[in-house]
């Protein structure tokens, strides 16, 4: 007979590498971040909460945070609006089209963020594809400013993060019982009504999961935000980078990092909890 304790510790054995990695790569840096954020000044001359007070009382910092969260929300909403038609086409397609659509959705995930971001610079730039096309067609008189704009950034982020939205939405659409839409149709509902009263409410768990993924990914997308948004749009990731590397104010940038992390995870948890509370009868997965 093997004692129960030995048995349990044997079962835990395979998780140890992961636990060590988690500790080393997440818990320890986070603890260090908390510690650094509690120093009074960049010279580490004493502990205090002054960095947090500085953030709360500084309108510029608050604006950067709210802009960043808003960017995440906007990109996630745009991705949601694009994902539903895509998912509906996917579900209605045969096996070949499904494979093709899956491939097209997954393609961005197979290339590096830097490559995808540069592709957008090529498309949106002053001499980029859109401008040259519009100019040569005579539709625009002068090149339009697309790169280094908020809209350009939203567009690029939406395309880059779309897979995170499309996959959960497709998944919940696939799990939707086809008889439910047939029942609605038989009862006389139009396509729009079927979508709004049956498909949307019943796939909301997938949509919310996708929205949260894209929200978190877009709000924290340092490379794309910086390269497509440009230097004039300041968002939390570049703000933190600037405070740490540029100004060398490590305590303040540590506080910024923690506040940003808490804000993003707070929103993710709050939206998740609200949706569980209000989606009566919809099985969340």
């Amino acid at each position: 007979m093997v004692p129960a304790g030995t048995n349990a510790s044997r079962q835990l054995l395979p998780v140890i590498p992961l636990a060590v990695l988690f500790l080393a790569a997440f818990v320890l840096p986070l603890a260090a971040l908390v510690l650094v954020s509690l120093f009074r000044d960049p010279q580490f001359s004493g502990l205090s909460l002054v960095q947090y007070l500085r953030f709360i009382s500084d309108p510029f910092s608050l604006k950067v945070l709210s802009d960043t969260l808003w960017l995440g929300a906007e990109v996630a909403l745009a991705a949601l609006v694009l994902a539903y038609p895509l998912a509906l086409v996917y579900v209605a397609s045969g096996p070949f089209m499904r494979t093709l659509i899956t491939f097209l959705i997954m393609l961005p995930l197979l290339t590096s963020t830097v490559v995808r971001t540069f592709a957008w610079i090529v498309i949106l730039g002053r001499d980029g594809i859109i401008n040259s096309a519009m100019l040569s067609l005579g539709l625009w008189q002068a090149p339009a400013r697309l790169l280094y704009t908020w809209e350009g950034m939203v567009l690029a982020l939406t395309q880059i993060q779309l897979p995170l939205m499309a996959l959960p939405v497709i998944n919940s659409l696939l799990r939707l019982d086809g008889n439910l839409t047939r029942a609605a149709e038989g009862l006389g509902a139009s396509r729009a009504r079927i979508f709004l009263t049956v498909i949307l409410p019943l796939t909301l768990p997938g949509a919310i999961a996708g929205w949260l993924l894209v929200f978190a990914a877009a709000a924290t997308a340092f490379i794309t935000q910086t390269l497509v948004g440009g230097g004039r749009i300041i968002l939390m990731p570049s703000y933190i980078y600037q405070q740490a590397v540029g100004v060398q104010d490590w305590p303040f940038s540590a506080a910024l990092s923690l506040i940003f992390t808490l804000a993003v995870t707070g929103i993710v948890f709050a939206v998740g909890a609200l949706s569980r509370r209000y989606l009566r009868g919809v099985d969340a997965a």
Binding site: N179, A183, G186, G188, V198
Partner: peptide, 18 residues
Amino acid sequence: ANRRRIGMVFQNYALFPH
């Protein structure tokens, strides 16, 4: 189907769960 005025009862009932 949505203009045929047919009442259909499905094998699994297909009641709207929400």
